[in-house]
């Protein structure tokens, strides 16, 4: 068949990896912004906002990401809007990560002790000031490890974008393999590239978890 694995194939795979990273970053940024709004709505004093976002999370978490991608690519095209594979994949990943990050961050906000809210309330800070100056800075530190952990999930799940023809790392692997038919070698390289992207995130996440005394930037004498 089409010859053996050469440097052109490797460059093609690397390009795929770059697109995987790009898709992940896009999804993480837009999913993060939306997820932050979702998490704030989940702890809002307004019952309606809490219920709506709870339903949103339930709905998204109960739907396979693959189906979300199909829905946004084929479904929206049928409705008459031209959607590129990148846009469809990005939208699907955004929706997906906003629901999960929203729920992770809600947990982080709620794990800031109630006494902290109370102390801020008695100072007296307004609700927005309490959130911004007291609760979020503490929740942010609690949130770092699970957030880094979830980013690993986005990197890997971005491979599902291959089903709508978006050439990220997995799709690039399929294309190279179709031409030279060396599945073991090709997908081994693909796997190593995924690992190389995920490992720093896992490492970072673990480092956050094991670091103790996170508030002490100054050493006690």
């Amino acid at each position: 068949m089409g010859g053996s694995f050469n440097s052109n194939h490797f460059v093609f795979l690397m390009m795929g990896a770059v697109w995987t990273l790009a898709l992940t970053m896009l999804a993480f940024v837009s999913g993060g912004v939306l997820g932050f709004v979702v998490s704030l709505c989940r702890v809002s004093p307004l019952r309606a906002l809490r219920l709506i976002t709870a339903a949103y999370i339930l709905l998204v978490q109960g739907t396979p990401l693959l189906v979300l991608i199909f829905l946004l690519y084929f479904g929206v095209s049928m409705a008459g809007f031209q959607v590129s594979p990148l846009l469809a994949a990005d939208l699907a990943l955004t929706v997906y990560s906003s629901a999960y990050l929203g729920e992770i961050w809600r947990g982080c906000i709620e794990s800031v002790p109630r006494e902290q809210w109370e102390a801020a309330e008695c100072l007296p800070l307004t609700r927005t000031q309490r959130m911004r100056l007291v609760v979020l800075p503490q929740a942010y530190k609690i949130a770092a490890p699970p957030t880094a952990g979830f980013m690993v999930q986005i990197v890997k799940n971005s491979s599902l974008a291959s089903v709508v023809g978006f050439v990220e790392l997995t799709r690039a692997g399929q294309l190279v393999n179709n031409s030279i038919f060396q599945p073991f070698l090709v997908f081994l390289i693909v796997a190593v590239l995924y690992f190389a992207m995920c490992y720093p995130l896992s490492y970072w996440s673990r480092k956050f978890e094991t670091r103790s005394g996170i508030y002490a930037r100054v050493q006690p004498e």
Partner: peptide, 24 residues
């Protein structure tokens, strides 16, 4: 003043005390 102090752990002593005058 509470039994469990409830200082803000992410702020220094100065910042803890200054938060009320500055913000409230």
């Amino acid at each position: 003043v509470f039994q469990s102090f409830n200082l803000f752990p992410h702020l220094t002593v100065r910042e803890n005390v200054a938060l009320g005058p500055r913000v409230a």
